[in-house]
Design a protein around this nucleic acid. Sequence first.
DNA 1: TATTGTTATACTCTATAACTATA
DNA 2: TATAGTTATAGAGTATAACAATA
Lengths: 168, 168
Amino acid sequence: MPQDATAPTVLERPVQAGSTQLSGVEIGDLSGSLGFVLRICQLLAFDRFYRSGEPLPISAGEYSTLWTIGMNPGIRQGQLGTALFIKPAHMTKLIRRMEDQGFVQRVVPEDDRRAVCLSLTPVGEALIQRFRDTFFGRRAAEAEGLSPKELEEFLRLLRKYAGVTTRA
Amino acid sequence: MPQDATAPTVLERPVQAGSTQLSGVEIGDLSGSLGFVLRICQLLAFDRFYRSGEPLPISAGEYSTLWTIGMNPGIRQGQLGTALFIKPAHMTKLIRRMEDQGFVQRVVPEDDRRAVCLSLTPVGEALIQRFRDTFFGRRAAEAEGLSPKELEEFLRLLRKYAGVTTRA
DNA sequence: TATTGTTATACTCTATAACTATA
DNA sequence: TATAGTTATAGAGTATAACAATA
């Protein structure tokens, strides 16, 4: 149980030289932790994403998953999960959800009957096209605080770190 | 139910010019979505973090929370949650967990009896010091794939995007 | 034996809203 | 009336392990 006491609030505390803050809160060496800063950036980007523009009927994660299936018709469930960091147990549930809504078709290939291949249904395809501009049009809102040049470089480094490859 | 069919696997598909891939999977315009790429980077960083070095007795998120309380003794629960993007309902449970383990002390200040001020107990303080090197020493593993110079710039942009301020 | 995916359990975190006690 | 935090409920996502079917 909490005890009673007089404690100063953070806002009243003077800012020290060399101080590193996030929303007025001291974080010290945490600002040098890639994992920590990436997490904060990701939550901020999601926040901005969901606040801007027309609402989507599915989550950003679901849209990304459908989009990726659309780009890779016949992709195996496991391969999709590996690329998008979705664990097998969760993938089963997610795909079932997409299947129940009629967005995704599951097919067991002849050559390996253990596997499941995924593709979009016409309804699923229509869905991603219908909300394509909505989904991808939020870059401006997401990029808030960075200059166009910085955004460019930011995306380049993020892609490099993520291991995204581009073929010219 | 899945139907039978012959479907090519993604690996067999030829790589098109202009193709943008993640783990051999085509992602197209998703590589330009800040939210998507940040999410992938964050999951990758966490993966590398957890795979490297001595195991921590608490999660990375819990360590960050305790660390921040240590840097801001007497911080209000709500202020901590705002900075770290932890929602009030979850914060209550998280802090109770930390309190139950003897790491955190909750104090209701005299001047506003609705609030709760947080600080580390000696046990909590000892814990963050004990695992300080373990936690912060994983930068090398986390930074895999980036040159020291790129890492520097990457962190600078991440901090700027996150709104981390530094006082010289 | 190893691999692909499923099921089951438990826990963390998010979303939402109703609630309390203070201010 | 508004604010700080709590409680409750539902769902998403993670972690783990056991399991079935197939290779």
